[in-house]
Design a protein around this nucleic acid. Structure first.
Lengths: 143, 143
DNA sequence: TATTAATCCTACCAAATAAATAGGATATAA
DNA sequence: TTATATCCTATTTATTTGGTAGGATTAATA
């Protein structure tokens, strides 16, 4: 399951992308429109800024804006940033690799192979799920 | 990520399936062969028994045996039993459905649609990953 | 019938993680 | 100077995870 942090982050990003011509957008506005606690969202957007997904502008009429186009920012990046590895097993990820302590032979582990195939498929889909793609899907669903 | 409980459960089940002609097999034996804490594994096998995945036999020379063939028992069932929903979002599962509190319109949520496609793919693969399938994969990998 | 070796049952516990909350410092536009 | 932002540090609370402890019950066999 995605954590609330990840969900809030994606929702916020989609919101900014939808209102891209009104950037920068304040945390307050997003928190009100998206039903997210102000302070919690603040810490999330700070993380997104530190990860260079967002740019920030301080002071009055400041706020956050996308660092990149809605076609470039995708769910895989956001999920990894907040929830860590996408895979079902720690031995099946490049970015967060760790051996399963109880494992007897990683090379011939059947569970691992299944997990690897699922990871490949999932990562592919999460990478395809860019902000632009999500917005496009929503437009289609509204018809 | 799968919890250790789930991983231990699958490992134990694969172990029993591999030694299917020696059933019933004791918790002690599995815990020693698979590097899993005895007491913890005991509670896991109890849950598997309550879920009718395993049968138990008490007393000397007792232990656990598969309730069903290795072709019938699959990873999806075990993951759901210990970790709950497989999907990335609570609004995308049949068995554990819950609305996302912060969600504005579930019907037209683009993130949800992505999560649904990933769930479908993942569940399909986890259902295909039966004990028999896992063992077959391991034999292939050993060559 | 005593011994051995299993499961079964209840309760507890410690560490980590998730989900916030609090309060103020600093920056900027008008 | 005022209003309104982000930025920064710290604390809190609840839940989940991964495990431990100790003994009761059951069954095979010598």
């Amino acid at each position: 399951m995605l954590s609330k942090k990840t969900k809030y982050a994606i929702n916020a990003l989609v919101y900014i992308a939808k209102n891209i011509d009104e950037q920068p957008i304040s945390v307050r506005r997003i928190s009100e429109e998206q039903n997210i606690s102000l302070k919690f969202l603040e810490s999330i957007l700070t993380e997104l800024k530190n990860a260079r997904v967002l740019n920030s502008k301080k002071g009055k009429y400041g706020g956050y804006s996308l660092n990149g186009t809605p076609e470039e920012i995708h769910m895989a990046k956001i999920v990894r940033l907040f929830d860590g590895a996408i895979a079902l097993l720690p031995c099946v990820t490049y970015q967060y690799y760790e051996r399963c302590e109880e494992c007897i032979d990683e090379e011939t582990c059947g569970i691992r192979q299944v997990a690897m195939e699922i990871r490949n498929e999932t990562v592919k889909r999460l990478k395809a799920a860019t902000l632009a793609d999500i917005i496009k899907r929503e437009k289609k669903l509204k018809k």
